[in-house]
Design a binder for these strands. Structure first.
Length: 490
RNA sequence: GCCCCCAUCGUCUAGGGGCCUAGGACAUCGCCCUCUCACGGCGAAGGCACCGGUUCGAAUCCGGUUGGGGGUGCCA
């Protein structure tokens, strides 16, 4: 069981799961699934003030929405638990003590103000900002004096004084840092909780993580962590730092660029397959021609070697396009199930849907399927299929129904339709043909006024489909209502 | 300030010395299909940041410049 591939996703529950985190989770998941490895989920909630259970729940449900299932972690357990850092505090304490015993950690009584002043000085002199070792050789008397002042010490790691620290990165190759860049950083805060850099090393080592796949923002901190691994006698894992995701302005993607929460995308009607496919393509590519990948295909084809090194701009338009692709791939039953919550929310369908209504809904969906990119588009696009109280688009009324013949045309269609045995293309088409001659217009000259009358808009599925779906009663009522509207306008 | 990473069409990318007069996808524009809108089909425009090397030959290798991103916290 040694040398088994184990990866982890370790979010801190301080908010929702954003697309950057989702992409990191995805790459870990793909790597694990493709290598028969284990995907661990660990919650990094050491910052009690900012972490919440609610955020944890939201993150879990976002991962579930995407279909990124974990082998060990919350709700699952596993042999390397607990998987919440807040439940591992005793463990960190032990390893901190170990460092102290080895002389690789020491108490520091400096105040934040003192540290800031020192950094400012160093920066002014053009030197790297690092801890000045002020508390490295404190005598017990000096420590007592500080304690008497009421100062609580933090614990600092005694970093290496010289040499180089190498990060072996599967995506970037060997990255070398001058060890002097690594200062004596804090591993335990004065409030008695471990810092990120310390807890992450202890956890990754104890959980036997073989590959640390995470955002590039962690690359610069990696030498610190490697020094910790070595000081603690742990084996150093392999790293893979994946590029950041940026907004259109090339700044780090954040809320101010719009929706970045996975669950929010779900609420707007993005499909998980589309999210996965799009996210996979942000920072990873396969060959020169393929952009649509099924999830099994991604699992099979994903490799860290093909992850790109440069940051990627999040392109919402491409995601939307891709969502449209996946919507068009859905079977009518799948599409119905996806649409149901949206139409129920809009009041188009009841909680319990009768068989007949379901059948009607599926027919409407069939017409709308190629016309939408997000499930939420289904609400405005389907309004007139479910409700009679649609509004008329003013521009459409002006332009299409404003002509001198509009009333006559609608009257003609009203009469002609009433006489037809069935409102399908076969029966209706000849009627339009005749109308063309009668009014000296093209097909559109008849169809557009009818469309506006029936839907209130200039955009809809084909007119024959609309007629058939609405049925004779509704069609007649709507034409009549439109004619009344035209009367009023005079 | 110091350190690290990165650099191919507007965007995501293919490319890893000659197969490149640089390929694909989204977006844009045009044409076709057509009752509108989509879908679909066809086509166009658009890029190797710059400067030096190395080489018979550089998008590809090396160095520098510039630009972007990240880190530098008792946040993660």
């Amino acid at each position: 069981m040694k040398n088994k591939i184990r990866v982890r996703f370790a979010p801190s529950p301080t908010g929702y799961l954003h697309v950057g985190g989702a992409r990191t989770a995805l790459f870990n998941w793909l790597f694990a699934r493709g290598q028969e490895g284990v995907f661990v989920l660990r919650i990094e909630d050491t910052d009690l003030a900012r972490s919440s259970e609610e955020a944890t729940r939201v993150i879990l449900s976002a991962l579930k929405f995407l279909g990124l299932d974990w082998d060990e972690g919350p709700e699952k357990g596993g042999p390397f638990g607990p998987y919440f850092q807040s439940e591992r505090l005793e463990i960190y304490k032990q390893y901190a003590q170990k460092l102290k015993d080895k002389g690789r950690a020491y108490e520091c009584f400096c105040t934040p103000e003192e540290l800031a002043a020192s950094r400012k000085e160093q920066s002014k002199r053009g030197e790297p900002t690092r801890y000045d070792h002020r508390c490295l050789h404190l005598s017990s008397e000096e420590k007592e004096a500080f304690r008497a002042e009421g100062r609580r010490p933090a614990l600092r790691f005694k970093a290496e004084e010289e040499g180089e620290t190498e990060v072996r990165d599967l995506i970037r190759g060997k990255v070398v840092f001058d060890s002097r860049q690594v200062d004596d950083f804090v591993i335990y805060k004065s409030d008695g909780t471990p810092t990120y850099n310390f807890a992450v090393v202890v956890d990754d080592a104890l959980m036997e993580i073989s590959h640390v796949i995470r955002g590039e923002d962690h690359l610069s901190n990696t030498p610190k962590q490697i020094q910790l691994y070595k000081a603690l006698g742990f084996e150093v894992p392999l790293f893979a730092h994946i590029p950041m995701i940026l907004g259109p302005d090339k700044a780090l993607l954040s809320k101010r660029h719009g929706a970045t929460s996975v669950l929010q995308f779900s609420e707007e009607g993005y499909l998980p397959q589309a999210m996965i496919n799009y996210l996979a393509l942000l920072g990873w590519g396969y060959d020169d021609s393929q952009t649509i990948f099924s999830i099994p295909e991604l699992v099979q084809k994903f490799t860290l070697e093909r992850v790109s090194r440069n940051p990627a701009v999040f392109d919402l338009q491409k995601l939307e396009w891709m969502n449209g692709v996946y919507i068009r791939e859905l079977s009518s039953d799948q599409l119905y199930r996806a649409a149901l919550p949206f139409w129920q929310k809009a009041g188009f369908l009841a909680e319990e849907v009768a068989a007949e209504e379901r059948e009607y809904a599926i027919k409407v969906l069939k017409e709308l399927q190629s016309r939408i990119r997000l499930l939420k588009d289904l609400i405005p696009h389907a309004y007139y299929f479910f409700r009679d109280d649609y509004e008329y688009d003013q521009a459409a009324v002006e332009k299409i129904l404003g002509g001198p013949q509009a009333e006559a045309i609608l009257n003609y269609i009203y009469e002609a339709l009433s006489a037809l045995p069935k409102l399908d293309e076969e029966h209706v088409r000849p009627l339009f043909k005749a109308g063309q001659k009668k009014f000296g217009v093209k097909m559109g000259g008849l169809i557009q006024p009818l469309r506006v009358a029936l839907t209130g808009t200039r955009v809809s599925p084909g007119i024959y489909e609309v007629l058939e779906l609405l049925g004779r009663e509704r069609v007649k009522n709507r034409i009549k209502r439109t004619l009344e509207l035209l009367q009023e306008r005079k």
